[in-house]
């Protein structure tokens, strides 16, 4: 999955195998994300007999679908050699604004949802404008947006959780289609759209080009600024979608609902083998990264490992993955 999605991924494998024969190092390099995930699944299934059951896997996907939707936007952003720290706050702004509009404002549900999505996407566009026109590093620009949008969400809600949201707006995050939660379909759809964008369109190719070498992209006639703005807008859009799902899950909306999500999303992308330096990575990788986090949390829950320890373990994994990324770069670039 990870290699067929990525422009650069494909050719690295082909090149590497041609030059070096089938080398173990290359194999590990190319497939390390899925190897880590498989290893984790094996360990977890030995540790707990309830782990390896269909219902539990549906549960894992349901638990990770919100993170997955956000991580797709993050994948696009990181591929351009950027970062979006504001995803959690944008999600909160989108969810709280649609919740307030529908409850206090009596706006019809579809319009309220539209309003929330427009808000989240617009803040994404602002991220893009600040980064490209303002020429501010993505880290700083989105750090500012994280704080400011967090404040906006608090202003919208006055610091209180919003309840009494119309059931139609909560359906996406709370209803099932047969055995499968709707949120899983949302994640699948967002992943599919991202995959098509990245591997089938010129826009996707431009993202890879900008991430690896923005100067060369510019001299090749790629509109670098425009592409970046669209990428950050997509990230904002996906955050809004994730906000709708989470709102349904927790049956309310509040200003802090997305806090900490940005780091999880970045972790998922990194675990999926996408280079934080940009230009290399894939949607499939991020799906694996998201699943890795889900399996880890779920398995550790089943093993009764405390939430505090789970943080320690996840943090350690982040560092290990970045070390892996650095090693990959040294070895293969």
């Amino acid at each position: 999955m990870s290699n067929q999605n990525s422009e650069t991924g494909v050719s690295v494998t082909k090149e590497a195998t041609k030059k070096q024969g089938v080398s173990v190092g290359v194999f590990i390099q190319q497939f390390s994300p899925i190897l880590i995930l498989l290893l984790l699944i094996i360990v977890m299934s030995f540790a707990n007999e309830n782990f390896l059951q269909v219902s539990n896997f549906i549960n894992i996907i349901r638990q990770t679908s919100i993170l997955g939707v956000m991580a797709m936007g993050m994948t696009l952003v990181i591929l351009t050699a950027g970062i979006d720290l504001s995803v959690g706050s944008l999600m909160a702004v989108a969810a709280t604004s649609m919740a307030v509009a529908a409850t206090a404002g009596n706006v019809p549900a579809p319009l309220a949802v539209l309003l929330g999505v427009v808000c989240g996407t617009a803040l994404g566009v602002i991220n893009g404008l600040v980064i490209t026109i303002g020429k501010i590093q993505p880290f700083i620009a989105t750090l500012g947006m994280m704080t400011a949008a967090g404040g906006i969400a608090l202003l919208i809600t006055d610091g209180m959780p919003i309840t009494g949201i119309p059931a139609s707006m909560l359906a996406i995050g709370s209803q099932h289609a047969g055995r499968i939660p709707i949120s899983v379909f949302v994640f699948a759809a967002v992943a599919l759209i991202s995959w098509v964008l990245l591997s089938k369109t010129s826009f996707g190719r431009n993202i890879y080009a900008i991430g690896g070498n923005s100067e060369a992209a510019r001299t090749s006639g790629i509109r670098v600024e425009r592409t970046m703005i669209v990428v950050y807008a997509i990230s904002g859009f996906f955050c809004s979608i994730a906000g709708i799902v989470l709102m349904g899950r927790i049956n309310s909306a509040n200003a802090l609902m997305g806090s900490g999500m940005e780091l999880n999303a970045i972790t998922a992308v990194a675990l999926g083998g996408t280079s934080l330096a940009g230009g290399f990575g894939s949607v499939g990788g991020t799906v694996i990264g998201v699943m890795t986090i889900g399996v880890l949390n779920n398995g550790l829950d089943l093993m009764d490992v405390s939430a505090f320890w789970q943080r320690v373990i996840l943090g350690t994994m982040i560092i290990l993955v970045v070390i892996l990324d650095a090693w990959r770069k040294r070895k293969f670039e």
């Binding site: 422009e7 080009a209 690896g212 070498n213 060369a216 001299t219 090749s220 006639g221 290399f280």
Partner: peptide
Amino acid sequence: RSGLIGHMPLYVNISVA
């Protein structure tokens, strides 16, 4: 390096413009 995209395949570099 400022005109060609080193980390992408040859064919992409030809068609990118």
